[in-house]
Simulated assay, not measured.
Amino acid sequence: MQLFKFFEIALVVLTLGSGLVLLFDRLYWRKRRLARAGLLDDGSEPVLVDWSRSFFPVLAVVLVVRSFVAEPYRIPSSSMMPNLLIGDFILVNKFSYGLRLPISNAKIIPTWEPERGDVVVFKPPHDPDQNWIKRIIGLPGDRVGFRGNTLYLNGEPVTYQLKGNYIGQGPGADMTGKSLLVENLPGREHTVLEDLRFVHPFGQGDWVVPEGQYFVMGDNRDHSEDSRFWTQTSFLPDELLRGKAFIIWLNCQDWFCKGSFDASRIGTRIQ
């Protein structure tokens, strides 16, 4: 997702640059042009001012919408299967957890707090130049445990219902045969994938979530690099949250939809 970081910086720079050009033109340059018109100058706008006048409104609207309303992302991995597939294009609500400045991600206006079960986009603490997506499992003060193939919350095991074997398609075909389960997470039921015949030798333990931080996991439990495996810290600080994923608006195998296209994914709400 490095492309998004580059786009974000370029969008801010171009918006500020074109806005400054228009400001200086209004305060200084236009007066000089009008004063010189009819002498050695025909009074026409320089190309830079003309371009800024054309592009600034568009850039400003895109910046405001992308920074404070909704932002698109593409799912590049299988860590959130079966709920999010490789190639899903999603929208992320940018004001769910507070209005934040572009680039710095600093919160300027608080809104709502994350809830258990929310699917969130964030910057991982060990690689803040990336954008990842996982599900919030533990809230501040929770005791989270993962032993065997069972998730524990505050000392109580989370219950599961087996729905059968998963059948994957396209890039997710290698997940075929995994167990499809309904995980009864308090407040938010959702499906997960697990290999019930295999217990991962790592990612086992118990954690107490600190204040202002969260414990996150992928729905594809055997194929997710999440809080269970982070070595520097097992927790996601609130200031690294980007927003709440809420809908799938497209599914393509690449940015230009040259590969397979799944119209059935369009409009799917992210639970």
Results as ranks from 00 to 15, higher is better:
residue 115 E to I: 14
residue 57 P to S: 04
residue 139 L to V: 02
residue 66 R to C: 13
residue 48 L to E: 10
residue 101 L to H: 06
residue 87 G to Q: 03
residue 52 S to A: 15
residue 62 V to R: 03
residue 81 M to C: 15
residue 146 F to T: 00
residue 95 F to R: 14
residue 117 G to L: 05
residue 80 M to C: 06
residue 122 F to A: 02
residue 83 N to C: 00
residue 74 R to E: 09
residue 47 V to F: 08
residue 85 L to T: 04
residue 99 L to A: 12
residue 47 V to M: 07
residue 55 F to A: 10
residue 121 V to H: 05
residue 170 G to W: 04
residue 71 E to D: 13
residue 55 F to V: 13
residue 119 V to I: 08
residue 102 P to F: 12
residue 123 K to Q: 12
residue 116 R to I: 09
residue 105 N to P: 13
residue 90 I to Q: 10
residue 108 I to W: 12
residue 94 K to L: 15
residue 62 V to N: 07
residue 112 W to M: 13
residue 134 K to A: 05
residue 82 P to F: 00
residue 148 G to C: 06
residue 85 L to N: 08
residue 85 L to S: 12
residue 79 S to R: 07
residue 141 G to F: 08
residue 84 L to I: 08
residue 170 G to D: 05
residue 103 I to K: 12
residue 155 G to Y: 03
residue 98 G to C: 12
residue 130 Q to V: 15
residue 125 P to C: 07
residue 79 S to L: 03
residue 48 L to T: 08
residue 45 E to D: 15
residue 100 R to L: 03
residue 151 L to R: 05
residue 84 L to N: 01
residue 149 N to D: 10
residue 168 G to P: 07
residue 104 S to E: 07
residue 50 D to R: 14
residue 58 V to A: 14
residue 88 D to A: 05
residue 151 L to T: 11
residue 165 N to M: 11
residue 161 Q to S: 11
residue 139 L to A: 03
residue 167 I to E: 02
residue 141 G to K: 02
residue 87 G to K: 02
residue 85 L to F: 10
residue 107 K to V: 14
residue 153 L to T: 01
residue 137 I to A: 13
residue 92 V to W: 00
residue 167 I to C: 00
residue 121 V to C: 08
residue 90 I to C: 02
residue 124 P to Q: 01
residue 108 I to C: 05
residue 85 L to E: 08
residue 122 F to T: 06
residue 89 F to W: 06
residue 60 A to I: 03
residue 169 Q to V: 09
residue 110 P to Y: 14
residue 85 L to K: 01
residue 59 L to T: 07
residue 59 L to A: 10
residue 155 G to H: 02
residue 90 I to R: 10
residue 162 L to K: 09
residue 53 R to Y: 13
residue 164 G to Y: 05
residue 163 K to Y: 04
residue 90 I to N: 11
residue 63 L to P: 06
residue 48 L to D: 09
residue 84 L to F: 06
residue 82 P to K: 09
residue 72 P to M: 01
residue 93 N to D: 09
residue 142 D to R: 14
residue 129 D to L: 15
residue 129 D to V: 15
residue 114 P to I: 10
residue 155 G to L: 03
residue 68 F to E: 13
residue 90 I to A: 11
residue 153 L to E: 01
residue 132 W to V: 05
residue 166 Y to Q: 01
residue 97 Y to F: 04
residue 46 P to Q: 00
residue 143 R to Q: 13
residue 114 P to H: 11
residue 89 F to C: 03
residue 132 W to F: 14
residue 101 L to V: 09
residue 55 F to S: 11
residue 89 F to I: 12
residue 170 G to S: 01
residue 158 V to P: 00
residue 129 D to T: 15
residue 50 D to F: 11
residue 120 V to A: 11
residue 63 L to N: 01
residue 80 M to V: 07
residue 80 M to P: 08
residue 76 P to C: 04
residue 165 N to P: 01
residue 110 P to W: 11
residue 169 Q to W: 14
residue 113 E to L: 15
residue 171 P to W: 00
residue 46 P to E: 00
residue 171 P to K: 03
residue 136 I to S: 12
residue 120 V to T: 02
residue 67 S to R: 04
residue 102 P to Y: 08
residue 170 G to H: 05
residue 149 N to V: 00
